[in-house]
Simulated assay, not measured.
Amino acid sequence: MVQRVTATDSALQLIEELKEKHGPLMFHQSGGCCDGSSPMCYPEGDLLTGSQDVLLGTIGDTPFYMNKKQYEYWKHTQVIIDVVDGRGGMFSLEGVMGKRFLSRSRAFSDEEFKELKAEGTV
């Protein structure tokens, strides 16, 4: 099964630290300007999702959503969540820790894209 979203080991470690402090979490990437263009980490349920959000998958047992319009640009790629030093979005939980989540990506291979089409997820 092709994963639409994955995370680096350092991102998974930070997710675990945040879960210890805040309980269950969720991610959302809207594709807007400023903070909205970064993956944002919230306590689960703090951001209401709706019909304009796509659940890409989970990272560290944490759901990762993306705005449907943004998804149209990213659907041919695997989103890879990483962590870098620096201040992130002011509403994202990791910001006070001097870290920020960062989205990287790689294009799916032809074989992976065919598999996603067969699953009906493209």
Rank of each mutant, 00 (worst) to 15 (best):
M1P: 05
K114W: 01
K117H: 11
G89I: 02
E16T: 06
G23N: 06
K68V: 06
A118N: 07
L102D: 14
Q29K: 14
F64W: 13
Q52D: 14
K114E: 13
G45K: 09
K75E: 07
E72V: 03
R104Q: 12
M40C: 02
E16K: 09
P63N: 10
T62Q: 02
D61Q: 15
S105E: 08
T58V: 00
S10V: 02
D53Y: 08
W74R: 06
S38E: 10
C34T: 07
Q52L: 12
S38M: 13
R106H: 15
D61H: 15
K75M: 07
Q52E: 12
C33P: 00
R4Q: 14
F101K: 01
R100Q: 13
G45S: 08
S38A: 15
E16R: 09
G32E: 06
E20F: 00
G98I: 07
M90I: 14
G60F: 03
K117S: 04
F113A: 00
H28N: 04
S51K: 12
P24H: 06
G89E: 06
K117F: 04
T58W: 00
S30V: 09
D9F: 02
T49H: 02
V54R: 13
Y71R: 04
T121W: 15
F64P: 05
I80W: 13
W74C: 10
G45E: 03
S109E: 13
T77R: 15
E16M: 03
E72C: 03
V5E: 02
L56D: 01
D53F: 07
K68N: 10
